[in-house]
Simulated assay, not measured.
Amino acid sequence: MIKKIEVFAARLQLKEPFVISYVHLDDMPTILTRIETDEGVVGWGEAVPDQNVTGETWESTYHVIKHELAPLLIDEDPFAVDRIHKKFNEKIDGVPSAKAALDIALYDLMGKMTGQPVYQLIGGKAHEELQVPRVISIKSPEEMAKDASEFVKSGFRNIKIKVGTNADLDIARIRAVREAIGEEVQLRVDANQGWNRMETLKVIRETTACHVDWYEQPVKAHDLRALKEIRALSPCSIMVDEGVHNIYDLVDVIEMRAADMLNIKLMKSGGIYPALALASLAEAAEMPCQVGSMVESAIGTMAGAHLAISKSIIHTNEMVGPLMFVKDVANVTYYKDILQLSDKAGLGIEVDEQYVKEITCFSCEIK
């Protein structure tokens, strides 16, 4: 039974600022959760909220976990994940990253209590390895091209670029990166809701020769009609991200035929358990999936990695957070662009609890 939950509001130092269409981050605020059973088994979870995507702030997520969600877990069975999510949803609507922070810790606990890696609990290995891209923040076309070239030289075979500030400049960014990396390297483009319908169609039309794998969430999350029109006219695949948080959103996308692909994020869905439902629904619709990242630490990253490797409908992933931090809360191993998963129980990582305390701004304990 669960006897204690600790919540740490921490900030991780980035190697360089992370810049996308709607935010500039100099460090990454995160909420880490530590759940302990009456037998002393410990599970770790993480929330990386995004007020522009999930409607949660760093501070609000901390308080929701502390006052609303964590108390529901005291004396609960960690394996009662369906019942626990039902309790969460009856207590408070939304707040998916707050729920994910506890959900991930539950799966880490379940793995450790059974001596199994998380992927074995949710389907086993559907893939032999996880190849990750390198994600490039918004900069000048020249700077992005230089970054992309260096990443390819270091062994990355997939480059994803952030755009969405100005359509004409974004066209220059896409062209510059493609020229820098050559024709063999895969290129993905993410506007993070930064364009309107006409801008999107212009960018796609003028970068057709760049052979982009897909354009991700080009328009506002709510505008599925525009997304549908773009998909109907685009020669390239369209991926929905911010437009889908849960199975109800995905039903709408599938019925409208508004996207070719789905980006699943644990912070949007509420954790591994609801993300599995999204993957199953997408599979029924023959919609390939990606497990995306909110730039989580090793904890959230490995949770996403276990999900990604366990489902055949999940074709790609962006488990890149640990590559972006000066120092992480646990060690994650990459061999060039391959993320290594161990066969250790749970998430398969050893969290540096002393370092967690060093980077924590405020914390609490629930018993």
Rank of each mutant, 00 (worst) to 15 (best):
I2W: 09
Q13Y: 03
D27L: 02
P29N: 04
R34L: 12
R34H: 06
W44K: 00
T54W: 00
Y62H: 07
E68N: 14
L69A: 07
A70D: 12
E90G: 11
E90C: 09
M113Y: 03
P117D: 11
P117L: 03
K125P: 13
A126K: 01
E129H: 13
V135T: 12
E143G: 03
M144N: 08
V152N: 09
S154E: 15
R157A: 01
I159R: 06
G164M: 03
A167S: 10
D168N: 08
E179N: 12
I181F: 00
G182S: 07
L187W: 05
L187M: 08
L201M: 14
A209W: 00
A209C: 02
H211V: 07
D213T: 15
V219T: 13
S237A: 15
G243S: 15
I247K: 14
D252Q: 15
A259D: 08
N263D: 11
K268P: 10
P274S: 08
A275T: 13
A277L: 10
P288L: 08
V295M: 01
E296N: 04
E296L: 02
A298H: 00
I314W: 06
T316H: 13
N317E: 09
F325Y: 11
V332K: 02
I338H: 12
S342N: 09
K344G: 06
A345Q: 13
I349Q: 01
K357P: 02
T360N: 06
S363F: 08
K367M: 10
K367T: 09
